[in-house]
């Protein structure tokens, strides 16, 4: 994932405030990262919400205990995801769960090959599998974006809202909504490229 220093500094400040006992900062932290982490985890528990809840709770408890040690060497969300992956393995082991996602699928070359076959035969089982995997790629990419960006992208491209409607929904001016949408598009593309090592356009050719 592309890391920018501005975001790292913002994350570091938030972590410092949370670690210092600032209640408002804790709530900001929870509101921003709980939904993203929950959705990130759901993609790895085959949609099992109970399991995701347990893993996310364990992860966030660890993170708030360690918050004072966060040094801003990686994005806060990247740090959360790393701890989350460890907790997933731990919870799976304790419950005797064998998950096909126990290895992060972004690290499996075979899945990339499946994705690349998406345009070969639209009616084939391989195509269907690839489409499912691609959908999960997109969800994981979205979970890495700031909540606000993921929300505007969903409003625009899935729910088909106009910019004016997005502005109303997000309680911002039309101008600000346009601006956030523009940033969100760029962030999604950059995030996709960074996570999966190829351009999103490539997948749909």
């Amino acid at each position: 994932m592309c890391v920018n220093t501005f975001q790292l500094k913002t994350d570091q400040k938030l972590a410092q405030r949370v670690a210092s006992g600032d209640v408002a900062a804790f709530d900001d932290f929870f509101r921003e990262y709980f939904p993203r982490l929950f959705r990130f985890t759901l993609t790895r528990t085959d949609g099992n919400a109970d399991l995701a809840e347990e893993v996310v709770q364990r992860t966030m408890c660890i993170v708030v205990r360690k918050m004072g040690s966060y040094r801003g060497e990686a994005l806060l969300f990247t740090w959360l995801c790393q701890i989350c992956r460890n907790e997933l393995v731990s919870v799976f082991r304790q419950r005797g769960v064998v998950s096909r996602n126990s290895v992060p699928f972004e690290d499996v070359p075979e899945i990339r090959a499946a994705i690349e076959s998406i345009s070969e035969d639209p009616g084939s089982p391989e195509h269907s599998h690839a489409a499912t995997e691609l959908a999960r790629f997109v969800r994981v990419t979205l979970s890495h974006l700031p909540l606000r960006y993921a929300s505007v992208l969903e409003l625009k491209y899935i729910r088909g809202c106009s910019v004016a409607e997005i502005a109303t929904e997000m309680k911002m001016s039309t101008k600000a909504a346009e601006s956030v949408l523009s940033r969100a598009r760029a962030a999604f593309k950059e995030g996709f490229r960074s996570l999966w090592d190829f351009e999103p356009d490539f997948l749909l050719k």
Binding site: R39, R139, Y157, I158, P200, L204
Partner: peptide
């Protein structure tokens, strides 16, 4: 492309 990808993923639960 973005629209197609996001529609494939579907709405966030």
């Amino acid at each position: 492309t973005l629209s197609a990808l996001l529609k494939l993923a579907g709405p966030t639960e």
